[in-house]
């Protein structure tokens, strides 16, 4: 527990030090999305009987928290293992890789959650009538944990920063646009729709939009996200245990 808290302490120190750049950085993309897709493209549009802005804000929250959680952990772990070698400090300390993974993933997920809260605060400027309740926050946190765990696994597994960028291009960016974030999936071809339905971000988008409604659907979203988190966490820890710094 002490080691876990030590990792969180380190992340908090770095967060405090870069508070302004982290906060501004987390706000730029969502504000642009809100302006472009909310005011610009979506002004007056309706999707499934609801205001487009009301539809798109949960999608923007889902994709931004995904991006922030993934990149915060993925890039930090990858850089610390390959370039600045700070990963070694944890490897020579009496810290198990499970604790190390838990610390890094928790910290990344909290950063993602923080960016989600920022978007929700910004979205108050837009009259969208969002329903934010316990389910909404649960789905949001699970999304952050899933993608922080994916970032951790990628950061440990991938042996160059260029390949991390490729992973983002091939895995994260397509999810950001396809998983029901900006448009409903009803009109997608059935095969693609089936595949997209398996992806975690789809369950986040659905869950965040549905947080005041269908409990069975919400339960499915929570279970799928929780399963993704457990699997990615286990894979991340196993990969990390085998990983060596490149030295």
């Amino acid at each position: 527990m002490r080691s876990y808290l030590a990792i969180l302490w380190q992340e908090f120190v770095l967060f405090k030090r870069k508070f302004r750049s982290i906060t501004l950085g987390a706000m730029i993309s969502p504000v642009l999305y809100l302006i472009a897709f909310g005011w610009g493209l979506g002004g007056g549009m309706t999707v499934g009987g609801q205001n487009y802005l009301q539809f798109v804000i949960p999608g923007i929250v889902a994709l931004t928290t995904m991006m922030v959680s993934f990149s915060t952990v993925g890039n930090a772990v990858n850089l610390s293992r390959i370039y600045d070698k700070t990963f070694e400090e944890f490897m020579v300390a009496p810290v198990t890789m499970t604790v190390y993974a838990a610390g890094k993933i928790s910290a990344g997920a909290l950063r993602g959650f923080y960016s989600g809260v920022l978007i929700l605060l910004i979205s108050l400027l837009f009259p969208a009538g969002l329903k934010i309740n316990g389910f909404f926050l649960l789905i949001l946190m699970l999304n952050c944990l899933v993608f922080a765990a994916l970032g951790f696994t990628a950061g440990v597994l991938i042996d160059s920063h260029a390949d991390m960028a490729k992973f983002t291009n091939f895995v994260i960016t397509p999810m950001a646009f396809l998983c029901g974030t900006f448009f409903p999936l009803e009109k997608m071809p059935w095969l693609l729709k089936g595949f997209i339905g398996l992806l975690p971000l789809t369950h986040t988008s659905q869950g965040l939009r549905n947080s005041g409604g269908d409990l069975r659907m919400l339960g499915l979203n929570v279970v799928v996200l929780a399963l993704y988190f457990v699997v990615l966490f286990v894979v991340g820890v196993r990969t990390c245990t085998k990983a060596e710094t490149i030295g």
Partner: peptide, 13 residues
């Protein structure tokens, strides 16, 4: 106690 050949301190701390 380990002192590696390369710097592995956290420069941002």
């Amino acid at each position: 106690g380990v002192v590696p050949q390369h710097n592995n301190l956290d420069g941002e701390m």
